[in-house]
Each structure stands twice: as structure tokens, then as C-alpha cells.
Nucleic acid binder design. Structure first.
Length: 426
RNA sequence: GUGGCUGUAGCUCAGGCGGUUAGAGCGCCAGGUUGUGGCCCUGGAGGCCGGGGGUUCAAGUCCCCUCAGCCACCCCA
């Protein structure tokens, strides 16, 4: 059916977009406080950008990208994540040329992955992401995590868990990889098929297996923490110290390994139970080799991506009600064609003065117009009938309390602009 | 991509073992009130019972296919 939206996509109706706008306004405010500036990039990029950065053999690149050839024969891909485009922009717009570090964020970027949908997993979703390029100071890692934490906290959420780990630099990773191979090689017969494949291809992924049968071998596996070089170890302990200072309560999770190839060093996830199996609302980490991979001079970076739909899902399931829409200031209620003709002009005048005002266009009865005003909900009903018309006045009714009084039109406009409710005389 | 559950009014849902004009609550519209909303009462509109095919005298109900949502795996935000 052509009126059905494509699988795994969502429509956003006005009632819902209010919540998006609220979340977005909080994100903008937090970014402002932390000194990050917004970027916007095309929704599609050269396919090669993602192949190179995310990694040729990751699930996302292998089977989840929306890739197409344009009419000029270029292979383009709807972005499946935000960090690579941000890194591309960093290079293309030469953000490295300014005083470092480059602190940027993106808000509600559409992200596309061809996946099997379920709640919290869509083919098009939206992310809020923050990236910092140019510094390897662990204080920046801490800042990034704290920013995400503050943002979620500002929305009134709790029950969030921050998991962190260090995947080490390229150097410590090779040693660790061998240690993992050695540990698992004796148990391969008892482990799942995927794990046997991972053992050969990428032993780090072994830690990611969630099968019960593999769990005991993972539990006893060597921890990356024991295989970090001195620099990585120092960075990681400094990060944890900073997180303590920043009031971020985090959990060391040595099995935490992220799925994109560009991650190095710090990795972290923020999860919430309300999400079920897709429990990650925010994920990120360091990607010190990414910029170099894309052909730039080596430049470290840290960042995260945060799923807006998942966030909204948590808010809904936890019954955290963000501030609702501002009620309408005034709803014009008129009786008769003559009053209606006057109402059009008055409505315009109110709006020009900054008052949120509306009127009936459905030819409703007087009673129904008043009910409309109530349900909107509007703060005041402005009643315009024959009496008011003759006297050049209008009746201002406070819908919450029920008090009303009839005043001159100029006074009514002034009253609505000023805000305070009208007098109590009935 | 694999396995499972579910699709009935705008929303949340009820419809015994196939059987007459498919129901409720909320919402919407009108009236009860010649110029007063909310609460209450009365009435009304609104359904290709997700779509297609099949079995049957007869299908919302049974069978097959398909689409969509959900749950788990996988992966991730």
C-alpha cells in the first residue's frame, strides 16, 4: 500500500514532535555549556568513506548499508553512522587548522541501516552525536562521557548504567589478541560456531558472545586491563579519576567491545533496562586512528552517538513526561457571521503582537467553540458576540478559573500580551 | 538473515465449537442550554475485521501466501 510508510521507519506527528523538540533543546543547551558547535552534513556520502572507517568486515558495512549508484555512476551510501561523516568534515573543512581541539556535535541526524526492525531498532533512526578531534587528553574522554550523562540526567532520567572499558592502542591490542587466542584455543570444541570463527578472525569479538554455553570461558578470559601498555593504563586510570570528579557513576566492563573498527582506547556504553534487548541508548569511545585512515594527518578523537528514538522510548516507558506544549494563549469564540468577520482581523492583530491565538474554522456552534477552547487547551477564550460588537468590546474568559470580564479591544490585546489573568469580577 | 507471537473503529480492546444487521470504553460530531467550556445525560458519524487466495451452503473465526508490528537471536543507537 502506497500510504504505508516503509518498513522500519517512523512518522512523527505534531504531538510527538513536541517531545523531539524538547529533547533537542536540552541537547543544544548542554552542548553550548560544554563548548561544542553544531555541524550538518549530507545524508549520503561516498560509500568508500564508510568502508574504510567503519571497517570492511563489520556487519554494518557487509550487510546493512543503503548503497546506490547515482546517475553519474558514483557509489553513494545513506549514512549508517555519524562519526565518519564528522571526521570527513573535520578534514574537508580543515577544522584542524584552528586552535585545537575541534569540538562539534550533530543533532537528530537520520541514520540508515538495513536491519530487521523491532522496538528501538529501525531502518531509519536519529542520533545526537558529539565528537572532539585533536586531543588525546583523557580529560576529553571524561568530558564526552560526562556530557552524555548530564544530558540524560537533565531530561530527568535515572536507572542508567555507564559501562566503560579500554581497548588499548594498536600496540597493546596485538599482545592482548594473542593472549585471548591462547586462552580460548583449549575450549574451542565447547564453544559456538561463531566463536570459532571469531577466534580465527578477530579474537576481541569473542568477548561479545552472549550465548550461555560460551559465557564460562568468557568469564575466565584475560582482561584487556591486564594487557594495556603503560601509557594506556595511565590514560585509563586518569579517565576513571576524572569521571569520579565529574560525578559520573560508571562500571568497568572488561567484556565491552564496540562493533566498529575505528575504536581504540576508551570505549563506553550507556544502557537502560527499559529498552529490553536493545538496551544501549548511547555508545562511543576513542578513535585515534580514524582521521589517519581517511588520509589526514594523524589526529586523535573521541565521541559518542545517542539514539533519539531509544531515548524517547525510555522516557515513555519510565513515564518521564517532558514539559508539554505551551497552551494556546487565546481562542476566539464568535457568534454570527458579523463577529466572525471581525475575528479574522483581531486574530491577526493578536498574532502580530506575539500572542498564540486561534479560532474556529469548522462552523461550530457557540458551545462547541468554547469546548474547543477548553480542549485545546487555551488559557483564555475571547468571546465576540453581538453585544461586544455593538460596544466595541470583547469578553475575556479565563478558562482555568472561569472568571471573565468584558473590556475594550485594545485593553484585551494588552492584557494578553502582559500575561496575568484578568480581574475576578464576574 | 534465523526462530516465535500478534494484526478487529482515530486510540485501547471484546467477539465460545464457523451461523443473521461486528461490539465496548475513550476520542470526534450534534443536542440537552435563545450567549458560556470542564462534570453529567441523549443521539450520531466512523470498520475492504492488515492484504490476497483457498476450504465451506456460510469465514472476523479454519488453511496457505503476503505485508506490517512485536519478542528473542544477531548487530547496534
Amino acid at each position: 500500500m502506497i500510504t504505508n510508510r516503509p518498513r522500519g521507519t517512523l512518522d512523527i506527528v505534531p504531538e510527538e514532535s513536541v517531545r523531539w523538540q524538547y529533547v533537542e533543546s536540552v541537547a543544544r543547551e548542554i552542548c553550548r555549556r560544554y563548548g561544542y558547535g553544531e555541524i550538518r552534513t549530507p545524508v549520503f556520502e561516498h560509500t568508500e568513506l564508510f568502508r574504510r572507517s567503519v571497517g570492511e568486515f563489520t556487519d554494518v558495512v557487509e550487510k546493512e548499508m543503503y548503497t546506490f549508484d547515482d546517475r553519474g555512476g558514483r557509489s553513494l551510501t545513506l549514512r549508517p553512522e555519524g562519526t565518519a561523516p564528522a571526521a570527513r568534515l573535520y578534514l574537508e573543512e580543515r577544522l584542524y587548522a584552528g586552535a585545537g581541539p575541534a569540538k562539534i556535535y550533530y543533532l537528530s541526524w537520520p541514520i540508515f541501516r538495513y536491519e530487521r526492525p523491532q522496538a528501538g531498532r529501525l531502518r531509519q533512526h536519529h542520533q545526537f552525536g558529539v565528537e572532539c578531534f585533536g586531543s588525546h587528553d583523557p580529560a576529553v574522554d571524561a568530558e564526552i562521557i560526562a556530557l552524555a550523562w548530564d544530558f540524560l540526567g537533565a531530561l530527568g532520567l535515572d536507572g542508567l548504567v555507564v559501562g566503560i572499558n579500554s581497548m588499548g592502542c594498536a600496540g597493546c591490542r596485538t599482545g592482548y589478541r594473542e593472549a585471548l587466542r591462547a586462552h580460548f584455543s583449549g575450549h574451542l570444541e565447547e564453544m559456538c560456531e561463531d566463536c570459532r570463527r571469531r577466534h580465527a578472525q578477530n579474537p576481541l569479538r569473542l568477548l561479545d558472545c552472549k550465548r550461555e554455553s560460551c559465557a564460562p570461558f568468557i568469564a575466565t578470559a584475560p582482561a584487556i586491563a591486564d594487557h594495556l601498555c603503560e601509557d594506556c593504563r595511565a590514560d585509563f586510570s586518569l579517565l576513571r579519576e576524572y569521571l569520579g570528579v565529574l560525578g559520573v557513576d560508571c562500571r568497568l566492563d572488561s567484556s565491552l567491545v564496540r562493533g566498529f573498527d575505528y575504536y581504540t582506547g576508551t570505549v563506553f556504553e550507556i544502557t537502560h533496562d527499559a529498552l529490553g534487548a536493545q538496551d544501549v541508548v548511547c555508545g562511543g569511545g576513542r578513535y585515534d586512528g580514524l582521521v589517519e585512515t581517511l588520509g589526514g594527518d594523524p589526529s586523535p578523537g573521541v565521541g559518542f552517538g545517542l539514539g533519539i528514538e531509544r531515548l524517547l522510548l525510555i522516557l515513555e516507558r519510565e513515564d518521564v513526561r517532558p514539559p508539554g506544549p505551551d497552551p494556546l494563549d487565546a481562542y476566539l469564540v464568535c457568534m454570527g457571521a458579523e463577529a466572525r468577520r471581525h475575528a479574522v482581523g483581531l486574530l491577526h492583530r493578536l498574532r502580530a503582537a506575539g500572542v498564540a491565538a486561534d479560532m474556529d474554522y469548522m462552523d461550530r456552534s457557540f458551545r462547541a467553540q468554547l469546548r474547543r477552547a477548553d480542549r485545546y487547551p487555551a488559557r483564555f477564550a475571547l468571546i465576540l458576540g453581538e453585544e461586544e460588537l455593538a460596544a466595541g468590546t470583547i469578553t475575556v474568559k479565563d478558562l482555568a478559573g472561569g472568571a471573565q470580564r468584558t473590556v475594550g479591544v485594545d485593553e484585551a490585546v494588552a492584557l494578553l500580551c502582559a500575561g496575568p489573568p484578568p480581574g475576578e469580577d464576574e
